[in-house]
Every structure is written in structure tokens, then in C-alpha cells.
Write a protein that binds this DNA or RNA. Structure first.
Lengths: 222, 222
DNA sequence: ATCATATTGGAACGTCGTTCCAAGTGTGTC
DNA sequence: GACACACTTGGAACGACGTTCCAATATGAT
């Protein structure tokens, strides 16, 4: 059986995944097409299907490649809390750099990339010294919060790209709309609109993680 | 201008949205098609486009209709914490009943349905008595956590439907796979697998909300 | 050299969102 | 009561997509 390379640049799952990531990064979520992929790999759609189940499989594999890279330095020497913060920030940055990872993650329930994240988070949560039941609650809350931010970030970037504007311009425009809302109907949204304009996504994200970590700590102290 | 009804069942945005919701509920996320919608409304695709911008607009409008219904009893007489819990649970239940709302919400950044949620949550957070800065942090954390759970729930249900199995069977199968993972590579995931099988989505969700509320409270107490 | 198997490239299929336009329907004017 | 006019409708047509299919080619074993 031909397991060895047959010629210098034969088609392979890895080459297909690498090309998919390049396509997703450069053209956005809708840029990954079997036609575009065929062209870039100088082959036909049928050849790709020999190595890949379907588009969902391909997307999940591409997502997993990025997540695996991000989660690789899982166990640092710091405290569990700091490691969780580092893990979360690593994911945030990875999704910021590859927005399509955010939306793909949402649709990859229970699959490889999600497993990696659950395990890395879980190991640190476990080191926090909670009861078995609380371990699951804490890990699940962190996971879902991270996924929520990931999804929103992905949606923002995707929307901005689709309308051919800058991401920060889009958020600025949103802040303007919010600040012009009816103060009677939308008092809160209106009041945070100005903060919206100059806020730091990354810092806000970390503040949310700290809020959950604080909840965990106060629960342990009971 | 013909603002009045011209005949008993003329086409209208509301009738289109209602039909879309029915289609999404009965046939799932992929069931909403301009062709299926045309058939159900006994008209053509072009007629629908007269009342609706595009599919995204239609999806957002359908989502907003459900969210508006859910958020309507926004201000109860209970404590802010309890109201937040009730709000979150209401959303959870709505998304459980209409899984497509979960995925649509993810893609509706800064649009009507999201605005409703931000405002309702924000008003209660404000009543918690935090600094202006902490208000945004708290509301944003709650929002993203809810969206994260929503997205995952939607993905689970969608996956189960696509593979024509029951949702709980799917989760059970996932628990089985997890329990058979390599204990060296996936110690945490393996250890929570059994808990997974008999867990209560709703209770877990609420526990996560409580964790965030706990973090908020401990931060206020500083 | 020959054969079986693994792999390739591209044509073809059905479905989707969307656009376009000829026809139908109602309203206001004379 | 007839005409002009804008609003609304239904369905044909378009281009792009994911996927399937298959004839052609390449590879490794004998």
C-alpha cells in the first residue's frame, strides 16, 4: 500500500487542511469553497473528497489544527488561575487572528477541537481543588463563556468583512447607533454606548474570565 | 396607497415571519428556504423579497419575534439577582424550544434581538449597584455566557437532527465516547463523562449564571 | 510486463439565494 | 366609467455552491 509520498507535491489531508486555513484567513469564512480549494491545489473537487469526508469535516479539521497549536503549551508552571487566564487569552487571540475558528467551534459540539479545550480547562479547574460536581460546573461555565465571546467576535469580524468596512469602524458605528437610542426604552444600552467606543475587547474578555474565577473562589470559600 | 388589507390573506412581513418561524420549528434550521416559504405561502420568491431584504434579515426578524416574546415580562418584582436568573432561564427555555434562535443570535451582532437582551440584562445589573465600568463588565459576561450556552445547545440539537437521532441519545453517545478516552491524555474529560450522561442542561446552565452572579457579588464586596 | 488498487481531475446534478420582469390589482383623477 | 399610475405578485432564470460519479492515470506487487 502506498503510504510513502509518491511525488513531491502529492495531495494529502494535511496539504488540503493547510490550504483551507490559508483560504479562510485570506478570504474569510465564505472564502473556503471546493472550487477555490481545487484551483489553489491545482486539482479537481473529486480528488479532495478522496481525503476529506465533506465540508464540515474539513472545517472542523482546520479548526482543530489552529486550536491544537494554541493549546499546545497547556501546562505552564503558574498557578491554576493564571494558567486558566493564559489559556483563555490564547484562545481569544487565536480566534481574533482566525475569526472563522470562532464560528466553527460553535458548530463542532463534542468534536476534536472542543475536546482539547475542555481537557485543558478541566485540568486546571481540577487543580483548583473543587468537589467533583463543582469541577464540571466551573469548567462548563468557563467553556461556554469563552465560546460566547468567540462567537460574537467571529460574527463582528464577519459582518464587517461582508460590508467591506473595518472592524473597529463597525463597532464605532454600533456605538453611535446605541448612543442615539430612546433613553426611555433603552436606558442601559444608551448609557454604555460611550464606553463601547473606546473599550478594549481583550481586557473586557479577561475581566469576564476573572468574574467567573471570582465566583469559583467565593464558592470554594463557603 | 393601499395600506389597508386588500384581500383577506394578502402577503405581509408579519405573515412571512410567522410562516418562517413555523418552518424553522418544524423542519429545523435548514428547513427555512425561499422555495419552501413560497410554497407554504402560495406565492413566488419574488413576492417575498418585496417584504424582506434577504434571508439574513428574515432570520433576524424571526429571531427577534421569539426574543421579544420571551423578554416581554422583563421587570418582575423580585430582586435583581432573581430577575436575572429568571431572564436567563427564559432565554434558555426559548432557545431549547426553538434551537435555531441560538445560532441566529450568534450571527445577529448588534441587531434588534441582541439589543433587547442587552437592555433587559443591563437594567437588572444596574440595579445591582455596581460602578459604571463594572456594570458593563457584568452585563457583558452574562450576555456572552448565555450566548455560549445558546450556541452549543443549538449545535447539539442541529447535529442530532441532521443525523436523525434523538438529542439525548446523541449526548449519551458522546458521554460513552468520552468515557473511553485515553486516561493519560484526557483525564479530566474522562472523569466527567459519567456525570455528563445524567446531567441536567438547565440546572447546569443556572449554576453557571450563579457562578457569574457570585463573582459579581464578591467583587462588589471588595 | 501485467495486473489490481489507489488516486486524480473534471463534468454533471440538484439545491440554494437572489434578480428580473411581465402580469395583475387597487387607487386617485378626470 | 375609463384612464393613468404605483404597488404588489408569481415564477422563470442566473450563478454559485456542495456533492457525486466516473473515465483516466499513477503506483506497487508479482
Amino acid at each position: 500500500m502506498g503510504k510513502r509520498v509518491r511525488r513531491e507535491e502529492s495531495l494529502s489531508r494535511d496539504r488540503i487542511i493547510a490550504a483551507s486555513i490559508a483560504l479562510l484567513d485570506s478570504r474569510g469564512e465564505d472564502g473556503l469553497t471546493f472550487r477555490a480549494l481545487s484551483e489553489r491545489l491545482a486539482t479537481g473537487a473529486g480528488a479532495i473528497y478522496w481525503h476529506v469526508e465533506n465540508k464540515g469535516d474539513l472545517l472542523t479539521a482546520a479548526c482543530d489544527a489552529v486550536v491544537a497549536r494554541t493549546m499546545a503549551p497547556c501546562a505552564a508552571g503558574a498557578s491554576p488561575e493564571d494558567t486558566i487566564r493564559a489559556l483563555a487569552l490564547g484562545l481569544f487571540d487565536a480566534i481574533d487572528a482566525h475569526p472563522w475558528v470562532g464560528s466553527t467551534l460553535t458548530r463542532a459540539a463534542g468534536q476534536a477541537p472542543m475536546l482539547r479545550i475542555v481537557e485543558c480547562l478541566g485540568q486546571q479547574v481540577r487543580a483548583l481543588g473543587l468537589s467533583d460536581e463543582d469541577q464540571w460546573t466551573a469548567a462548563s461555565a468557563l467553556l461556554h463563556y469563552i465560546l460566547g465571546v468567540a462567537g460574537q467576535n467571529a460574527a463582528n469580524t464577519q459582518f464587517a468583512r461582508a460590508h467591506d468596512i473595518d472592524r473597529s469602524d463597525f463597532l464605532g458605528a454600533m456605538a453611535t447607533v446605541w448612543s442615539q437610542l430612546d433613553p426611555n426604552e433603552y436606558p442601559f444600552t444608551r448609557s454604555v454606548a460611550s464606553r463601547m467606543r473606546e473599550h478594549d475587547d481583550r481586557a473586557d474578555f479577561l475581566a469576564g474570565v476573572d468574574l467567573i474565577l471570582g465566583g469559583i473562589a467565593s464558592r470554594r470559600g463557603r
